[in-house]
Design a protein around this nucleic acid. Structure first.
Lengths: 344, 344
DNA sequence: CTCTATGACGGTAACGTTTCCAATATCAAT
DNA sequence: ATTGATATTGGAAACGTTACCGTCATAGAG
């Protein structure tokens, strides 16, 4: 299939290439008549401009990279589709790039940036080391999405959107405490390498402290370093070990809905009924949480709004007005059937 | 950040640009000494060639498009990561492009192809109309992945990888029948617009027929046209309506694991115990199937192998040896606890 | 010493756009 | 009609590469 170029179109229309360029890019300095005539031909011959040439000339492309740490995380995956429609809505292409835990995000980002002359990037994922300063220094437009954040250890003044992980962790546990629970197990992610996990843990501890409940190490389970964070396996093993340890609890806070899935399984196998014997609260509010049995009470993260805000912020950056902003969303508690009030 | 170009490198090294080009592309006609010297500088200054310029000059890029219909389908999503590593392994970039059900895949593909001068594409998803002839006509290298297929209505001789949906549907239902079940409900996807669903349905009917069990329309549920296919909601509503209809069954075949998730929920709400009152078999073998309660017996699709084969096939196409091949995988039955043998 | 084959290298024309600038057409006002 | 201003248009340079082709050493053979 021989590709036809802007020159061909120009020849057919008997105009100069610049005129065609003006027509297809909706630029001023062209009469409506010729523009219409050109567009007619463009339609007819199904001409599509070569993106490489355009990008080359325009120094930067119209591509946004979506860099995600933890591409196998269902919560992130559920945002891909949204990102796609949102970015396309703004006329951008998007490039999905997974980075493993070993790789340095900034290195990857820089290479990608140069190689592709990207317009900007959205960093999705929680477990990366704070990349802001280096990214700022490089002058790369970016926005951080779903990074770990708390009011006590706030993210610097850089563009990001997310929730207050400490606060929402606090809210989740407070909810449990208000329901009469005092012995609350926690199934967490990585102990050291996951900032999101760390923040939600802090929220857990604060909620406990505020109600005069001592923090007990034996009630919390961190996942193995080599196990996938926030995964069903994480939850299964976590709950399993908690049960095996013999420690007693009437409620359980899982740091992700996927964790609860595995925890449900472990609980079930041990004959512990949810919520009768043990209440469970999750985090994220992914679609499947609704279909768990019993329906999972969970902290819903407004992921659709979050991706919208993310691209809006990025648009601001690459567009006219600068002024790094961020946006904190609140998680909303969805009450279903996995938590019951504990009788004295 | 001013991007440095091949000219800058050439100037620094006191050589011509063509020499630098030869060095970075591992081309002959350059002495090892200068090559080494140049690469040194390339490393030091962290020079990365401009992809747009390269693509422009080379007529086609090194990008593969992954075009997926039904981007919100967890089964497909679970393949993204695999595709990424596999494609990168072969030195290709990849572009994820979702296409909605309304859009015409071939149109989208053609535009993308021209605009980006893609090397080829992988079409992921089952509900698209047979695009092969048109794609062939256009001369676009492609491979179809997870398209609907059966030995009776085989796909033409074009590059594709997938399973035999009719056969595996047959296998699933046969398994149930061999376990003593005769009244087997079916929760399917779209009635008319989903070829995968149609093939598995055919398998269901064949299994029934072979065992002298009449096909009963009232035992099968198709999803609403506006509902997402193969989703938990699909399963929930399906099972709910089946139960409400009063028809009796001792087993249920769900066309995806996600469907079983919703079905479990509906069954649970109706007080129907799995597998005691009703056995359930799923399809896909996604990770979470393991963590459902009871553990889901399901037809596992070897998705990792399937993506590997897909890119291998594509590599063959864009590379030297042509010869459209395809690869049929077998699903393997994973037995867990959701199916029991029915006593007479 | 001369000639020639060979291996290294440099110069430069493309690739298909966009954008600046110059050129022309249009038109109203004088 | 002439002028000036303005709207439209065309030409050509540039973007950063690759690939072709020509040049120039170097060295080995005669």
């Amino acid at each position: 299939m021989a590709q036809l170029t802007i020159k061909d179109i120009a020849k057919i229309c008997n105009v100069g290439v610049s005129t065609v360029s003006r027509a297809i890019n909706n630029e001023p300095g062209i009469s409506d008549k010729t523009k219409e005539r050109i567009m007619q031909v463009v339609q007819e011959f199904n001409y599509i401009p070569n993106n490489s040439a355009r990008n080359l000339k325009m120094v930067e492309s119209n591509t946004i990279a979506l860099i995600v740490t933890g591409i196998d995380n269902v919560f992130f995956q559920s945002m891909f589709g949204e990102f796609e429609v949102e970015l396309r809505k703004h006329g951008f292409d998007y490039l999905l790039h997974a980075v493993s835990w070993q790789e340095d995000v900034v290195t990857v980002a820089t290479e990608l940036m140069k190689e592709k002359r990207l317009k900007g990037m959205i960093l999705l994922g929680g477990q990366m080391e704070r990349p802001e300063e280096r990214l700022d220094a490089l002058g790369i437009p970016y926005v951080l999405c779903t990074v770990a954040h708390s009011s006590e250890h706030p993210l610097p003044n850089c563009p990001w959107v997310g929730i207050d992980d400490e606060l929402e962790g606090y809210n989740a546990v407070s909810y449990l405490i208000n329901k009469g629970h005092r012995d609350i197990a926690l199934v967490a992610g990585q102990r050291y390498d996951n900032a999101v996990s760390a923040q939600r843990l802090a929220g857990y501890r604060r909620a406990l402290a505020e109600h005069g409940i001592p923090y007990r190490e034996e009630l919390v389970h961190f996942t193995d370093p080599q196990m996938t964070d926030f995964s069903p396996e994480n939850g299964y093993v976590g709950a399993k070990e908690l049960i095996a340890s013999g420690v007693s609890f009437t409620a359980m806070f899982c740091m992700s809905d996927l964790i609860t899935l595995g925890a449900y399984k472990a609980l079930d196998e041990a004959g512990v009924r949810v919520p009768k014997d043990c209440s469970v609260i999750g985090f994220d509010g992914i679609e499947l949480s609704k279909y768990m049995c019993p329906g999972l009470t969970t902290m819903y993260q407004p992921r659709v709004d979050m991706v919208k805000s993310s691209v809006e912020l990025l648009m601001k950056e690459v567009g006219a007005d600068n002024g790094p902003v961020h946006k904190i969303y609140e998680a909303t508690l969805i009450e279903r059937d996995s938590v019951i009030t504990r009788e004295e």
